[in-house]
Design a protein around this nucleic acid. Structure first.
Lengths: 339, 339
DNA sequence: TTGTAGGCGTTATCAT
DNA sequence: ATGATAACGCCTACAA
């Protein structure tokens, strides 16, 4: 098999020749580590300029062992939460002179993770992960610094960037209760030991705190996808009048969107025929009429912090804490009707 | 307790020693290019397995000159159009054994592009760009295969993935006209020779085709950001009754969102107090009540096609055509009121 | 201060 | 069929 090279690049050797010095001298002025006489430095800089020399980062990585590259793995890029996290992380990495590799892990099976590992383990110094729901990745495999954004799995102990999940759904549920709701449904969430499970727990805590009995018929479990939301809402709307909820809590942005889709399909709107409160702010929640009450998370900041902690790790420092819990807040809007 | 030294990575040399063969032999079975006896192959494979050897892609790139890596540059990751394009491109690249590097170019100045070039030119074999609006990037700099998604700049001739911009706004405007509208505004768009200018042109063509005089007061030019949309809509709503438009065309997703935001701020909705039709489908347009009439583009496919064309180029093949114009279509919904 | 030379982990080209 | 070995482009002791 023949491998053709596009064009011979200018190398450090060419620069050295042009400047009439040794390549080590060029390397020295480029990296500015060692002392070089002003005169030689000038000659070298001129040669670099004239030839338009650009360092070959691959060769540098080979010898230094540092790729200055980080892998970011997210379920997919069409989810605006992921987009924001990426945005924050990428900005920070760029500032710090790091480059971001990226990979979407939606529908990944064991074999895919194997490939992911093979392709990136030697290329990325560390890895920043936004886990899928459900999460099938084997983190133990990576013997590199790894930071998880938006997850909490108590059985392992990685560095994580989180928010208070239970507290969020508690606030959402409480908001409905305070507005006179008693028949409150929960759409999405799985009763496991992850962020999802915490959100379910928060809902249950709120009901308990206000002495409202749990009605299993009002809980529609499911993964955090749009489909869970739309089907869930359909199911709830079809409940007989006396059971049918007056308020609904959606566990995340996608399930919320699903709920709104189902409502739209029947010509209904959140805040009119039924009340809705959800985790995560997004376009639809923000600009719908009525706008939807949500828990807002500092998504961009979560990405930034994830990248920051990862770089701390890469630099051999020990971050202040394993779990970084970020602030989120309730944004009261008009989708919760006063009963 | 004794601590282990930092584990040196397993290299091809270790595998060779373990299998009792030369490194070139290991390389041969790994790449399967040359003939190797079944017996040696077995020994090597076992050694690889036992040591958990993973190829160092950097070293491979060094010698082959191929990084199997592509850079994708987008304005930002929070825009869902960009997210979809990335999704499509990343999927295709992954299928083809390529890795994606990523960089957001929002607010990039000349110096930033310089850095972008220095950091990636030796790392990426090609580059896939979703240009910003306005677009400040100097494409000529990259002496590598380059594909532009969602742009058309007639003065240069790069490979591009486009849609019929003028046709899109024509359809949008026509839809309003057909529903009895005569005072039709345009929000966003700049009268230049890019996709943006084409969208303005389509609007003008439609008015002309139906014999409706152009009213400059109903045209609110601007870059394709949310702010342009919200301010534009505000301005239009404040126009005296006799001039005020009954229908509005927004040039893209962000300006449309801005328009809807402005409406929401006044408790108004598209399809009620005023009609709205816009370029690009998105969450808010889809699930609002009423839902917004839009031009839908095959965003994921645009990303895939961009990646495909780029790989064609990288493989030395000549893509069928310089400009690939993809199909888009009008999605009639309920934001255009029959007058 | 500057130059020489030995790697970094592979592939590919020679021999054998 | 297999083994040696020269690149790839750069950094970094070590020499000079």
């Amino acid at each position: 098999m023949e491998r053709e090279k596009i064009r011979k690049d200018i190398t450090i050797k060419d620069v050295a020749k042009r400047a009439g010095v040794a390549i080590s001298t060029v390397s020295r002025v480029l990296n500015g580590l060692d002392k070089v006489s002003p005169r030689t430095e000038k000659k070298v800089r001129e040669a670099v300029e004239e030839l338009g020399y650009v360092q070959n980062v691959l060769a540098v990585s080979m010898v230094t062992g540092q790729t200055k590259t980080v892998l970011m793995a997210v379920p997919d890029f069409t989810n605006d939460f992921n987009g924001s996290v990426i945005q924050g992380a990428e900005e920070y990495l760029k500032e710090q002179g790091y480059t971001m590799l990226i990979c979407s892990t939606k529908d990944f099976g064991e074999e895919d993770f194997e490939n992911l590992y093979r392709r990136f383990s030697k290329l990325a110094e560390g890895i920043l992960v936004v886990p899928a729901n459900p999460d099938r990745m084997d983190y133990g495999r990576w013997e590199k610094p790894l930071v998880l954004v938006d997850v909490y799995r108590p059985q392992e102990d990685y560095y994580t960037i989180e928010i208070d999940n239970a507290g969020g759904t508690f606030l959402l549920t409480e908001e409905l209760i305070k507005n006179g709701h008693r028949k409150i449904a929960l759409v999405g969430g799985l009763p496991d030991e992850t962020a999802s499970g915490q959100r379910v727990a928060g809902y249950l805590e709120a009901l308990k705190a206000y002495g409202i009995p749990v009605d299993k018929r009002l809980m529609v479990p499911g993964v955090h996808f749009e489909d869970t939301g739309s089907r869930g809402m359909e199911r709830l709307l079809d409940l007989p009048e006396e059971i049918r909820p007056t308020g609904v809590v959606a566990v995340n942005n996608l399930t919320c969107i699903g709920c709104m889709k189902a409502l739209a399909g029947r010509g209904m709107r959140a805040g009119r025929e039924i009340s809705l409160a959800a985790f995560d702010d997004h376009l639809l929640a923000r600009y719908s009429v009525p706008a939807v009450t949500v828990i807002e998370r500092p998504t961009i900041e979560m990405g930034r912090e994830g990248a920051r902690v990862l770089l701390e790790l890469l630099r051999g420092r020990r971050p202040e804490q394993k779990r970084l819990i970020m602030e989120s807040r309730l944004l009261k809007r008009d989708s919760v009707k006063r009963l």
